[in-house]
Nucleic acid binder design. Structure first.
Lengths: 247, 247
DNA sequence: AGAAGGACCAGTGGTCCGTA
DNA sequence: AGAAGGACCAGTGGTCCGTA
């Protein structure tokens, strides 16, 4: 019954991205241009799934191997792109990746509003419930394994956009794949944590857009390991308990 | 492995209540006297379980039906007691009930310290993990169904001890049973919520000792229903959405 | 009857691994 | 090979109901 009501609500309320949007909002970092790109990409996707040729005019890219019809659809894989760069071909760029995190946030806010309206328990994080809601709202390209996989990349983007951007440019130039870039995102995050007393949970919870995401296990472990190293070289008692800073 | 390590830690660290404690701390509300009472009760319990007669001197109450040995042991049922009153016979009083909540808080703090030490996810609430830890630490009289059952009673005790105390005295005088008293605890809580914009989650999370407990479903529902009532008699549009206060 | 708590269950966080 | 995500699993929050 709670699920049914969710269904009802998810049919309205959840607008698609606006089809047209002013181009001048482009460089604003909020994903302004992105909305347009996302819409284009989505149309491509839709055309592919339906299996007809497009009935509205558009710039297209590849249309080969369109023959299928009911074949398994996946999102295009990510590639390392510079800030503002749109991926060409059957690829998605990193601005799009980060845009997905913003979309999840919007879905969470909607779920929270519904919960409050009904006096039910209100999630503070992006939970299974939110992923389910997103899927029902038609955002089938959002899923938990993907979002969890790249959380720390998004975290770096939120916490230090300059460093994040520099890293993207460097890895693009070197022609690295997404997995390698993703791995590289850990290091600057650990450095940020070091400066803030190693409390990665506090770092996440303090940031308005990051606070809704669970700290990834591996990032937590890296921070802990690095803290132990730092502490070992600072303290004389190697076996003693690690004492957190108190400033 | 995480479980094994927990075992190791739970063997040390977890002190029993101090056996002796100054009597002058009695009326302080922190459970000062309670420690002594709890210890006495625990000795009774231990003697019963072991099935021998006591090998240390004590004032005892009933010792009948001691014959068993491996019979199923349960905590004595609660009765409505006034503040400061110790239950006589095979009963437990409400100061003891509230004391259990404080104990859970101590166990949570220990679990949190261990988690932090290890760089693991750190619970902010009394979770299954904490109940498991309490059990391993020997506090077998603490269990989840019991603690959840009386959370709102403890909440009233935390939020308005005067009202809570008055309620206890009134219900004791009337000879009401625990279940009736428990039910009666909801109403003043809803009244408190009304004064604070109906946000029972905020009320819990704001209070230092209450913030570690999940808001009980029924209390949440009562607050929501009552808010709807209040709103219906205030607003002219009966079917409209309920707008939260913004002060 | 009133009450304590073992034990169950639906849905969670977490991520592996069969898939493309 | 590199990557996306369906689907599984251990342990959770929640509380019912067989027990005393």
């Amino acid at each position: 019954d709670a699920t049914n009501a969710l269904d009802a609500l998810s049919q309205e309320g959840l607008s698609e991205e606006p089809v047209q949007q002013e181009k001048e909002a482009a460089g604003s970092g909020g994903g302004g241009t992105w909305e347009i790109v996302a819409t284009e990409k989505k149309k491509q996707r839709r055309r592919k799934v339906v299996g007809k040729s497009g009935d509205d005019e558009e710039e297209e890219e590849e249309e080969e191997e369109d023959g299928g019809g009911g074949e398994r659809q996946r999102e295009h894989p990510f590639i390392v792109t510079e800030p503002g760069e749109v991926a060409r071909g059957k690829k998605n760029g990193l601005d799009y990746l980060f845009h997905l995190y913003e979309q999840c946030r919007d879905f969470l806010i909607q779920v929270q509003n519904i919960s409050k309206e009904r006096g039910e328990k209100c999630p503070t994080k992006v939970t299974n419930q939110v992923f389910r809601y997103a899927k029902k709202a038609g955002a089938s390209y959002i899923n938990k394994p993907k979002m969890r996989h790249y959380v720390h990349c998004y975290a770096l983007h939120c916490l230090d956009e300059e460093v994040s951007n520099t890293l993207r440019r460097a890895f693009k130039e070197r022609g690295e794949n997404v997995g390698t870039w993703r791995q590289a995102c850990y290091k600057p995050l650990v450095a940020i944590a070091a400066l803030q007393g190693w409390d990665i949970d506090a770092i996440f919870n303090t940031h308005p857009r990051l606070s809704i995401w669970y700290v990834p296990t591996k990032l937590r472990q890296l921070c802990h390991a690095e803290r132990s190293n730092a502490s070992a070289s600072t303290s004389s008692a190697a076996a003693g308990p690690i004492v957190g800073p108190s400033f």
